[in-house]
């Protein structure tokens, strides 16, 4: 009888023990969940703040680029137009006076066009296809190289942050091609395979050894920026064989 009483105590204690273990387990899980939740929130806040910082930098860079462009336009284009208008108004000939007026109207149009670019509102109204076409036209107009754009579809309705990043990455990729590659042609293709949308920027310039691409390079920043919007940046290049950049858009 004593043995069986002992066994009964063992059963009771074992039950209490198992219950205790389970309680500890559940409480520990809740505790770990809370800790990880806090860490997760901190991580999310950090990612969000980095994303905002990146966007702010991109906005600043686009504005800087725009100001440089405006400065150049003021000096090379509007400045010239105004000088010409001044010369024409200085003449006593009526046809020169009317030519001066026309030149002045043209200068006013140019100033209006430039003023629209001073803030970033144009980002919202312009599609990526229009932006790319503008950029390529500018390059072609300088006579630097030939350009071409092929688009299977119009990239519309992108969120502003994605649009800003894409604009900046395309702008920077084109700047790099102009500054370092001396290409004869620059091609941009906007295409879709499956559900994946891509922008391909290809030049036939000098190219470089892509394996030398270090973390400090501009390419690293471009890759990181594409990743902040959930996209991808891929680069392939070889010396003498040009450079190909593929921007994969987020789904």
């Amino acid at each position: 009888m004593e043995a069986s009483e002992d066994q009964i105590y063992v059963i009771i204690f074992a039950t209490i023990f198992l219950g205790g273990i389970m309680s500890t387990f559940v409480i520990s899980m809740v505790f770990i969940h809370r800790q990880r939740q806090a860490q997760n929130r901190q991580k999310m806040d950090q990612i969000k703040s980095e994303h905002e910082k990146t966007l702010l930098n991109i906005e600043n860079e686009i504005q800087q680029e725009t100001l440089t462009y405006i400065g150049r336009e003021l000096h090379d284009n509007i400045g010239q137009l105004l000088s010409l208008a001044k010369l024409n108004f200085g003449s006593i000939k009526p046809e020169k006076q009317s030519e001066g007026k026309e030149i002045l109207s043209q200068a006013i149009q140019e100033v209006r066009g430039l003023s629209k670019q001073l803030n970033l509102d144009w980002v919202e109204t312009l599609s990526i296809n229009e932006f790319v076409a503008q950029q390529l036209a500018r390059i072609q107009n300088t006579g630097f190289c030939e350009t071409s754009l092929e688009a299977d579809f119009e990239l519309l309705d992108l969120p502003k942050d994605q649009k800003l990043v894409l604009i900046r990455v395309i702008q920077e990729s084109l700047n790099n091609a102009i500054k370092h590659a001396s290409p004869e042609t620059i091609q941009i293709r906007i295409h879709e395979s499956g559900n994946v949308k891509r922008i391909l920027i290809k030049d036939d310039g000098r190219g470089f050894d892509a394996s030398q691409d270090s973390q400090g390079s501009g390419m690293f920043n471009l890759r990181k920026r594409m990743e902040t919007i959930g996209g991808q940046f891929e680069l392939s290049s070889a010396i003498g064989k040009g450079t190909e950049i593929t921007l994969t858009l987020p789904n």
Partner: peptide, 25 residues
């Protein structure tokens, strides 16, 4: 999940030793 866990753990010994307990006490 918590109560499923408790049900199966608290009744574990009891269920395994049910026949024995039924006869003894």
């Amino acid at each position: 999940m918590t109560f499923i866990l408790f049900t199966y753990s608290l009744t574990y010994i009891n269920s395994v030793a049910l026949l024995y307990l039924w006869n003894i006490n």
